[in-house]
Write a protein that binds this DNA or RNA. Sequence first.
RNA 1: GCCGCGGUGGCGGAAUUGGUAGACGCGCUGGACUUAAAAUCCAGUUGUGGCGACACAGUGCGGGUUCGAUUCCCGCCCGCGGCACCA
Length: 817
Amino acid sequence: MYNFQKIEAKWQEKWRQAEVFKTPKTDNRPKRYILDMFPYPSGSGLHVGHVESYTATDIYSRFSRGCGYRVLHPQGFDAFGLPAENYAIKTGTHPTETIKTAIAIFTKQIDSLGISYDWSHSVVTSEPDYYKFTQWFFLLMYKNGLAYKKKAKVNWCSNCQTVLAREQAEGGICERCGTAVIQKDLEQWFFKITDFIEDQEYEGRKISGLLSGLDSLDWPESTKAGQRHWIGRSSGAKVNFTLLTSDQSEFSVEVFTTRLDTIFGCTYLVLAPEHPLVEDLLGQAENSTAVKDYLKQVSKKTELERTDLNKDKTGVPIRGVSAINPFNHQKIPVFIADYVLANYGSGAVMAVPAHDERDYAFAQKYQLPIKTVIQPETGLDFDEGVFTADGLLLDSGEYTGLTSLLARQRMVDFLERTRQGGEQVNYRLRDWLVSRQRYWGAPIPIIYCDDCGAVPVPKKDLPVLLPEDVDFRPTGESPLKNSSSFHQVTCPLCGASARRESDTMDTFVCSSWYFLRYADPQNKTVFADPSKLKEWLPVDLYFGGAEHTVLHLLYARFFTKVLRKYGYLDFDEPFLRLRHQGIILGEDGNKMSKSKGNVVNPDSLTNLSGADALRLYEMFMGPLEEMKPWNSQGISGVSRFLDRVERIFDESPRSDDEEAVSFLQQTIKKVSADINNFKFNTAISALMIFVNYLYEAKNKKGEWPLANENLGKFLRLLEPFAPHLAEELWERLGYSSFLALSPWPEYQPELVKVETFILAVQINGKLRASLQAPIGLDQESALVLAKADPVVSKWLEGVEIVRQIYIPEKLLNLVTR
RNA sequence: GCCGCGGUGGCGGAAUUGGUAGACGCGCUGGACUUAAAAUCCAGUUGUGGCGACACAGUGCGGGUUCGAUUCCCGCCCGCGGCACCA
């Protein structure tokens, strides 16, 4: 086995000293910004998933440099956040320390893989130089009315005494202790992301919306679908119902429906327990005790209980109150039920049990009338029960007989005419809750003054530094409140004593703009100089895990659109091309986890087989984007391949052979195309096939069939995948320049000399012979050739050829009778 | 339930617009070299039948279109990922 330890250390040092991968200054070459999703620097170091992702972008970067692009290929660290804080709570070590150590480990590990990052363009989100601008972004949002404070329900773990981030309360259970999360009303900061769902124009600048902007992007379809679903646009109608109480007072309540065509089947109305009208109606209810009991019950429920689909729906009627259907003027009962969500639409729905499954279940339980008003267009054959599809209207007054589609249009017209409602679009997407009652994050730059109210921290006072001298153990309030030096300040406007906002920002805020900072990471005055942004942005290739399908990518797009709107950027989508890597499973087919003991450590592999072998193996395992299991024996295959490559360069005569040169050209074509399409597994396969061919030819000829110049071209193809060995062998060929900086070989079709091909002869679609034939063979000669074959002629005995299909250079199919 | 992705040898996987299914690699079997082992090299490796040339079957299942289907269409089954009372 070749001495990979020595070779890899040697070239890593040479690259570093010669600054081979330094980001180039502006010149007339086209640019390519190739970006990895930056990692969270955890104490356990790099795992094989990082290696997969970083190798993939490294291959593309090295390839791009060879192809004459100016390349920006940076890496940084997403250092704020709960894992570091929780680790700190557990061990008592300050997050600043653990992060510093972890970053050192990550950097060393990444360098030992030979990844061609330019570390001078790095960022660390927990450093004041960085979060100064995270705070600046907050102020930009605030100034433009895009950051606001309101009371909101947040996830609260009563055991840990803290608010949880949404991703920490998945399934309604606290990630840390397993306690069921409850909802608490607290004042929270929000970003108005919902303002950017649809296209808009501002001071002559067109900004595509979060929805339509997706259309032009080269992203995986699944990711686009995930974002569209999360935004959840649904168009329907708002309808006003009049509520009548026993003392003849009237209220109006708005409902949202996508199925206005079913309104003649509406047999009751439902309000969410949190609906503002509930309080007003409480006094009117004949059964106010029962209603109060129900409200109390609901408030005690955990999020988990409330969203459990397997549980029976619950609710309570408001007796003495009824609603009037604006279409048929029928009086219907009004319910409060927690299957209606307060924060979607208007928090009230018209219930049509015959045509909605949820309403049906509720109606059955409370024995409410079920009135069918839609029948399938195909007529007749429909059973009792719920029919949720569109169809023809039944029993619906003047609308009877219309299709659902037409009925919806006419009914909306009626609502608009009579001012009882109209068209309405709703979204599932809510505004982004960005405040966290946690220590390890960027402080929100707001000061509260008794006289002046909420006052933004003046720009000259940024960054608002995160104090290091606080007890960061969670108490239910932000730990920053414990630091009096931090908390007690004077008002920037009037100078009176005031207090600082003690919440920090969601780490997703920090990661929503880091890709802009890479263009100009040292800038002290602005987040990035406009000229630098123009030089590098938008990102040409963004690569990372599919777990960021929704949140991170949506937030980063939102930030970009805000910046575009206010003139800081000249583009409105940050990531033009996006690809995900598939998860690497453990050898047992399970997800890698410490508890399962199936975690593969990259360090042990670089020590055992070398970085080049590890890189090559991970790229050879299978399609990049697919989930695939680790196979510890698999790496020996690529190690063997590298050994075979190395032995070609042992002393031995070498001279160009026409056939080998031709094959090399075909390999150049194949490998280049595969890299462009991120099909690294087949690119490596092509390199292996070529090396196998060289050995075969040498066995026949007694010498290697390629001279040095062409062997150099082969090394250039190998370099993105196995850069250390490739550089070493390049040097052995006598070159003193860096292979990484030499141009990518151009495919020269005129050197491809292929004289024969294998003609597949089929009879009635079944393969009967594979014959060697000269290129350019015409159909007639192909038939002659085929007939001369004993197997073919046997099959043609006593039958008549009624049809021939000839695909030149490929196949001849004879159809017989 | 909805959305998205997938199902090919013992294993990971390969197959331009439909055109030789199983490339490449792992593993396995046999052989060469060696006192022996490792390493390396050579040969074989979808199944069934046959010494063999060959033949038949075969890309989750059932149909269809076609000279020809892993690829296209219809109807299912299974697995994975995401969302999940969004009216």
